[in-house]
Computed example of a mutant assay.
Amino acid sequence: MKLATTYLGLPLRNPLVASAGPLSQTVEGIRRLADGGVGAVVLYSVFEEQIRRQAEADRALEELHADAFGEALSYFPDLPGLADGDVPADYLRLLEDGAEAAGVPIIGSINGSTRGGWTQYARQLQDAGAAAIELNIYFVVGDISLSGREVEQRHLDIVRAVKQAVSIPVAVKLSPYFSSVGNMCRQLSEAGADGLVLFNRFLQPEVDVDALDVEPEVELSSQYEGRLPRTWIAALRGKVSASLAATSGVRDADDVVRYLLAGADVVMSTSALVRNGTEYSGQMLAGLEDWMAAKGFDSVDDFRGLLAVRHQDENAYQRAGYVTALEKAKSTYGSL
């Protein structure tokens, strides 16, 4: 079976990619992911806040000693602005060593929300050996005076700035919470994004009724969460030039197949590997090959996008699916 594929212009041995998460925090973890069989590894995200805190600490150190010896001022480096701090050295070292140890493409990941600093961060990841960069734009709008257009423009400005700063491919991990997801994806692709990762999972805190407090919680994804990104991947296949990466809701080989049928170029997973171990990627790939053999497919290209939306009127297609689902539910549960 031919599992080789291409993502962001990068040749991969198979379409299963380890997404950003706790398993890529060490060189050994990266090596184990690669040995498990994945086609590429997305490094855990370096956070904008982490970079800014380091810049603030450096600035505080400079100010603390600035008046001690006037002639010593030249010893202090020219520190960048808070938003233009350096990516932590340990992250860059992990990226460099991980790329050498893995034998598969390593994609650096930046998690932030503001425009400042992204270009410098991206250049540093490129210099450290990243095969590509994933912009994990985590922007939950708490300011209700901010318009949807302004939110969209922030994403587009970040993509354009980073694309001008680096020569390696750039993917955007975005949320599903746009008024027109498909149009936003098209704008990002036209702005230069080489890939779209669908979708980011926003933190949804829980309310503690006893403590009268809000508790931040992070849970592994469930299989059901794959339905939303699959819907949009099927709708976008062939309509944007950017590569399409699926993430969330991957439990087993069947979910990998589902995403590929919808039109995904690669399928990303973290939760399944955290639950079952890094070697579980080999089981998912074996399951993919078994399914391909049973269906008579020789390569993933033979069936990728087989169930993508090809109707002239995409709105009618989505509406028909909605009505059909309700009719099925009515026969199962009664009138809704």
Rank of each mutant, 00 (worst) to 15 (best):
R160C: 06
V274G: 04
G103C: 05
D194S: 05
V172P: 08
L326C: 09
S299L: 05
G29T: 03
G238R: 11
Q318F: 14
G321D: 05
T26Q: 01
A286K: 15
R258F: 06
A72R: 09
A293V: 15
Y44P: 06
Q54C: 02
L198E: 01
S113R: 14
Q223N: 12
V240H: 06
G103M: 10
G116Q: 06
M292C: 11
S179G: 02
R310D: 14
P80V: 03
L307T: 12
M268T: 01
S175F: 03
A245T: 08
I110A: 08
R310P: 04
G70N: 13
S24D: 06
S19P: 02
L307H: 12
L82K: 09
A122Q: 08
E190V: 09
R227I: 12
D90G: 05
H65F: 15
D67V: 00
G85Q: 08
W232E: 01
M292N: 10
V300N: 09
V151K: 12
E206R: 14
A235Y: 08
A191D: 04
V104F: 09
I106A: 05
A161D: 03
A40M: 00
V309I: 15
T324K: 10
G305K: 08
S145N: 14
W232N: 04
G29C: 02
T278A: 15
I106H: 02
L10D: 04
E134N: 03
F76N: 02
E63F: 14
D84L: 09
Q283R: 15
Q204I: 01
T278M: 12
V300A: 10
